[in-house]
């Protein structure tokens, strides 16, 4: 008799992902869904999709979903959570969505200690619109709108979201992880689980930034994109827990 050793997690629908080969979004969706399942939250979760490559997240997460305007997911999640304090509310956002157009929303949701969980995917560019510069684009990185590479004179410096948000008292748990190998996938899942547990315990705002590769817009093979991420993103965006409030400890 054959034995099932891996299956779809219940908090993901049967809809096949539309993501490009090698893109990190699929793995991060899966990890988020597994955590929702393992913590038994599926029937009380409301997810908020953002605008970016993950805009169709409402097709994939098998929970009640809203699709928010570009950058506004933390405000939408706040509206949901304030009406339904018992619900589990999460947003899923890219780096353009969260760190450019939605900067005010994320900073103030964290500042208020809004009891929501944010899954934040940093792929150092605007994937959905074809690979333009994001606030997280590295110095020297070539994008569609930094054709000669980002320069500090012309485009300023990349923003480190975890470091910024971890200065806020309302933030209870802030971590940065990656998913480029099995060990890091496991670490990411642990961080996501912790972030949801922080919410369930009512301890405050939680966010996990996951470094993601974007082979299509980086114009690299999936393998090379992993190499590029390790060599270029890791030095500027170190992994780790940036804020673990006393209550969370």
């Amino acid at each position: 008799m054959s034995k099932v050793i891996a299956s779809r997690t219940a908090a993901l629908t049967e809809t096949p992902f539309h993501y490009c080969p090698g893109c990190a979004h699929g793995i991060i969706h899966r990890l988020t869904a597994e955590v929702i399942d393992e913590l038994g939250l599926q029937e009380k979760t409301v997810g908020v999709a953002s605008v970016g490559c993950s805009v169709f997240a409402y097709d994939y997460f098998n929970v009640d979903m809203l699709q928010a305007a570009h950058g506004r997911a933390p405000a939408v999640a706040t509206g949901v959570k304030r009406v339904l304090p018992e619900a589990t509310v999460f947003t899923y956002q890219g780096d353009g969505d969260l760190a450019a157009i939605g900067t005010a929303e994320i900073v103030h949701a964290a500042g208020r200690g809004e009891k929501i969980t944010v899954i934040f995917v940093n792929n150092a560019n605007y994937g959905m619109t074809g690979g333009q510069q994001a606030p997280t684009t590295l110095l020297g990185q070539v994008t569609k709108t930094t054709p000669n590479g980002r320069t500090s004179e012309a485009n300023g410096y990349p923003i480190r979201v975890c470091e910024l948000l971890s200065t806020l008292t309302g933030a209870a748990y802030i971590a940065r992880t990656a998913v480029f190998d099995p060990a890091h996938v496991t670490q990411t899942k642990k961080a996501i689980r912790k972030a949801f547990e922080v919410q369930e315990k009512g301890l405050g705002f939680s966010l996990v930034e996951v470094l993601g590769n974007c082979p299509t817009n980086w114009h690299l093979s999936p393998g090379d994109s992993v190499k590029w991420l390790k060599e270029n993103m890791l030095p500027y965006y170190p992994l780790g827990e940036f804020k673990v409030s006393e209550e969370v400890e």
């Binding site: 409301v46 908020v48 809203l66 928010a68 305007a69 506004r72 405000a75 939408v76 999640a77 706040t78 509206g79 949901v80 959570k81 304030r82 009406v83 339904l84 005010a104 929303e105 900073v107 103030h108």
Partner: peptide, 23 residues
């Protein structure tokens, strides 16, 4: 719940979320 948002942009999106719950 009364909540002072960080801007009208956020306020209307909070309304979007709350209205989405049926409240």
């Amino acid at each position: 719940v009364y909540l002072q948002a960080e801007s009208e942009v956020s306020a209307i999106n909070m309304v979007f979320g709350a209205a989405g719950t049926g409240a």
